[in-house]
Amino acid sequence: MSVLFIALPLAILLGAAGLFACLYCIRSGQYDDLDSESYRILVDQQPGKSESPEGQE
């Protein structure tokens, strides 16, 4: 049963890793604009066109 002493902190640490990832996302502003992204995902990249905006000018 003493595995508990290792497993529990480990589980919490893993969870904490997930938490920090989430906090990073919030801090970096990924949740700020939930509207545009939901539209943007509907858009297919057109083949041969605007693959990278920088490349085409």
């Binding site: 700020d32 604009d33 509207d35 545009s36 539209y39 858009v43 605007s50 905006p53 920088e54």
Partner: peptide, 27 residues
């Protein structure tokens, strides 16, 4: 107004010389 507007504006840069990118923020 909608997804189409967003897409249209963001698709414009290659057609306009000198414009690198256009990113719409809906909110």
């Amino acid at each position: 107004h909608c997804a189409a507007c967003c897409w249209l504006i963001e698709s414009l840069p290659p057609t306009l010389p000198g414009l690198r990118s256009a990113q719409v923020r809906f909110s």
